[in-house]
Design a protein around this nucleic acid. Sequence first.
DNA 1: CTTCAACGATCAGAATGCGGGCCAACCGTG
DNA 2: CACGGTTGGCCCGCATTCTGATCGTTGAAG
Lengths: 224, 224
Amino acid sequence: MARILIVEDDDHIRTALRLMFEGEGFVVDDAPSGEVGVALFARMASDVAIVDVMLPGMTGFETCQALREASDLPIVIVSARDDTVDVVLGLESGADDYVTKPFVPEELLARVKAHLRRRPERSANAFQLGDLHVVPDEGVVRHADGAELHLTSTEFRLLTDLASANGKVLSREDLLERVWGYDYFGDSRLVDVHIRRLRMKIEPDPASPMFLVTVRGAGYKLVL
Amino acid sequence: MARILIVEDDDHIRTALRLMFEGEGFVVDDAPSGEVGVALFARMASDVAIVDVMLPGMTGFETCQALREASDLPIVIVSARDDTVDVVLGLESGADDYVTKPFVPEELLARVKAHLRRRPERSANAFQLGDLHVVPDEGVVRHADGAELHLTSTEFRLLTDLASANGKVLSREDLLERVWGYDYFGDSRLVDVHIRRLRMKIEPDPASPMFLVTVRGAGYKLVL
DNA sequence: CTTCAACGATCAGAATGCGGGCCAACCGTG
DNA sequence: CACGGTTGGCCCGCATTCTGATCGTTGAAG
């Protein structure tokens, strides 16, 4: 379903929120501070965020602005202060909604859902890989910092097929069949070559791969 | 600026809101009942609506649903009841926000602005591409400086079909089907040629396209 | 230490996209 | 009616990128 980021320093509230949203089918990432939250967002590309105002380090407003610079995701600010000035400030710093504590969980949920309803349909088959966001429909791989990196169609198929195997090891034969076609006759070394090319593009350190892992004697697998 | 519809039966509140929003540069239409509000909306095509819940005749929820069926404009519900059940009900009946009376006018204003921020300018299916304004309904592409540039009908369909794919890659076959018709039989090179002509017209530097991007081995996509 | 899977580098040919030129049909105009 | 201009469609050749193959090297398992 949707991926939600919760930035809240109070452990009790954070876990309570996590449980509620997980119960509703969300994938939850949580962070106890703005700094961690922003970093987490860069990796997870959340669909929506809930941000507390009173945070150690970066304030909620600052966090909100940082998130807004990176994305246009809906942001709901949660705060113990219900001063109008704060509400206005929050909304003007890029938030989409402002809920005051103590809040009723159901209301927060309903508001989050209302914002998500607005979101343009995201490609269902997109996935993340470390700092990389892979969007098959758009034919691009984007780095967290926004840079786009180019994969050829063969590399793309290789990557998406490995990803759809969901962490399982695929043998060279499996890959030849999936990517090149079941009746392809060729050197199985061909897979090695393309794996290498793919690594050079997506691995931070191609010499010691962290995503595209070799399983000696068996094949390759994609972790995460 | 923006056009706002206010549906509220209390004369005092209604005029107070009208004055505030007019003071902020909005064009205000107001209505004392849901029926009048919906009729008014049909004529005025408001950009945003504020709807009171307690209304004679149609309730605010019903009004909200009626508006939502006609448009996807942002709707803010205002109510004297702050029961969670009502809030959830309101949000689920299509509203985007729910503010309880007595409300602070500045907060309402900030919330309305936050919602408006979300829809910059998207009249039906018009869209923007760099500093070009494309208006399918009028069959016209205007440059920011006002100059009008003429596209042939094929070029126009090509452009609008690519735009409606929303950034996704469309293969030559997809495009042939969409632009020329599902049973068209011809050279897929045809697409290249028209893409090229389109680029010469809309790209600042046709040699290195920034909007109409080639995805080798897959097709074309329109970014932004 | 041996063996063999995996890796890295390189290269030629295939595939793909691009631009130019060409032609036929259509349109409004003189 | 003839004309020039515009538009849609088609073909060809060039440039670039991608792909698949080969081969020597590396390095881990046994």
